[in-house]
Design a binder for these strands. Structure first.
Lengths: 109, 109
DNA sequence: TGAGCTACTTGGTGTTGCTAGATACCGGTA
DNA sequence: TACCGGTATCTAGCAACACCAAGTAGCTCA
């Protein structure tokens, strides 16, 4: 994929990461690896870290530093109540957009 | 809707507009009005015009100036061959993203 | 004359993801 | 010991995109 997916990710990537965290806590490196595995081959490492810092500042996630056997300590993020609320909103917005797009695709306006 | 949809529109709005044009030619004012009608209440007028200029510069659309009875001349845009190709790509990217998101929503990873 | 709708343009702002490089901890190997 | 690769995070600078605000311009009708 190229630039197209990059632009489309703006705004959705955040929801994607929060959705991942809604399943269970995770840390940056892990999230990046998982996304790559899912086909998001272009997602830059730095992007995820920056995003995590952002959602933390906004109070959507809680953080815990956990030592790793294989390297420096991990920052494990978990979705808190506010984050879950925000994720709800995200899914609503996404649904709205997806419905409009789907309608456009089949039959046009 | 609020800021969330604004961010999510980045990258997709372009596809939306091209999809509209794939049905039949249209001009900026008309497109804006139609989008508002479809629930995209936050879309700014200027945004559509800027987007149209962009896709024109990229050679995805052809333009024709058509006099209007009700105001200044309209710039009517129509999707050309290159634009159709690009729209194809857009739908592929969109499908990829939508599938990942849908999977995330139900059942998580 | 002026209000209101139609129609397009432009300059500045904020958010977001990418690039590229740096830092740091650890195990294995030459 | 010295170095390399994998793990793990952070940062500064950049480009793209949508928004905001204001302006220009043509037309109709009171």
């Amino acid at each position: 994929m190229g630039k197209q997916v990059t632009e489309m990710l703006k705004g959705t990537l955040e929801g994607v990461v929060l959705a991942i965290l809604s399943d269970r806590p995770a840390y940056g490196y892990e999230i990046t690896a998982w996304l790559r595995d899912q086909g998001f081959t272009d997602i830059a490492e730095g992007t995820i870290y920056a995003l995590l810092v952002r959602v933390e500042r906004r109070g959507l996630v809680d953080v815990e530093k956990v030592p790793s056997e294989k390297g420096p300590p991990r920052k494990v993020y978990s979705l808190n109540a506010q984050g879950r609320e925000y994720l709800e909103e995200f899914w609503k917005t996404w649904t709205f957009l997806a419905e409009r797009l789907e309608q456009l695709r089949k039959g046009g306006r």
